Simulated assay, not measured.
Amino acid sequence: MNSTINQIYPVIWQDDHVYLIDQTRLPEEYNQVIISRSTDMAQAIKTMIVRGAPAIGVAAAYGMYLGATEIQTSDRSQFIEHLEKVADLLRQTRPTAVNLFWAIARMLRTAYEETGTIEEIKITLLKKAQSIQAEDLATCQAIGDHGLAILPRTPEKLRILTHCNAGSLATAGYGTALGVIRSAWREQRLARVYADETRPRLQGARLTAWECVQENIPVTIITDSMAAHCMQQKMIDVVVVGADRIAGNGDTANKIGTYSLAIAAQAHQIPFYVAAPFSTIDFNLADGSQIPIEERNGREISHFNHNSICAEGAEFYNPAFDVTPANLITGLITEKGTIEPDSLIKYKIGQY
């Protein structure tokens, strides 16, 4: 695919269905999948056709609405009972991303609070899903601007390292970590993005680099194991990554490999920022040890482009995420501004 995409929106509602960019086919092929049933949305989330915590939340919200349209009853209690089953189906898809559960909870609360007819509840659910999507886009733009404000001031333009994909593809549009990068590029403060390839699914190589190319942002792909070397060679000024869930003490779950990146950044005295919506913070969890970590099929490691690359008989361990302790994180960039991890407790008790 040689043509560029001007605006990247991974989840698009149109008429009575959802278009999803099939992220499993990028960058070789830009393809949109039509989703018109809640079961298909659940499968799309599970198989990572749509991925990234905020984008999963938006997709799940539309999945809840699609599930609501499939319920044929005029009895309110039966409708709510069936909608709860749709919620359970969607909850089972990806256990780590808190935005999934947050969006489902908002959709259920909307159904509970709507006092009209079943059809009016369905209309209200669609409006809520669209509102969640619009909110996320505005949130990401605010994250980008807050991130720009705290990036290091250097004589030269910045070289930013990022991991996995926390861009438009992972959100309603614009991105979190890549939103900060976009804002820096817009203000002519960015020299280059270094994108970790992000084994085993290569979201950095396949998706982050693709997004940068669409906007002519200079990008260099490196293997995950090259990051510390690049820091040692003074090629990196700052690290900005996304998050799938942040515990109440600031410990952060993100794509596997983030923890080692944070250790390397601290060793080389390089600022390490996490960019994420405030909704990613799970105040119900005291620390990162309570964050559920999704484990995926070992075939993601053993095979590349459907070809086996490992010795037969070997065993595999494939956690999709790791947890970076709060003391390795310089700041959490949210739509509310940049927060020091140890200050999160003040938000929980309402001092801000």
Rank of each mutant, 00 (worst) to 15 (best):
Q7S: 04
Y9H: 13
Y9N: 13
M48A: 03
R51H: 03
A55T: 11
G57Y: 06
A68F: 00
T69N: 15
S74K: 15
Q78H: 13
H82W: 00
D88K: 11
L89K: 06
Q92E: 13
L100T: 08
E113N: 15
E120Y: 02
T124F: 05
T124K: 13
L126F: 10
E135C: 03
D136W: 00
G147Y: 09
G147V: 09
L148M: 01
I150V: 15
I150R: 02
I160D: 14
T162H: 09
C164G: 05
A170M: 10
A184C: 08
R189I: 02
R192S: 08
T198H: 02
P200Q: 06
L202A: 14
R206W: 01
E211V: 08
E211A: 03
C212F: 03
C212Y: 03
V213N: 15
P218E: 07
I222P: 03
N254G: 09
Y259S: 05
I263R: 06
Q266R: 14
I270H: 07
P271I: 13
F272Y: 14
F272N: 10
A275F: 09
L285I: 13
I301T: 05
S302W: 04
H303E: 14
S308R: 14
N318V: 10
N327F: 13
I329Y: 01
G331D: 06
G337M: 10
S343K: 14
L344F: 05
G350E: 11
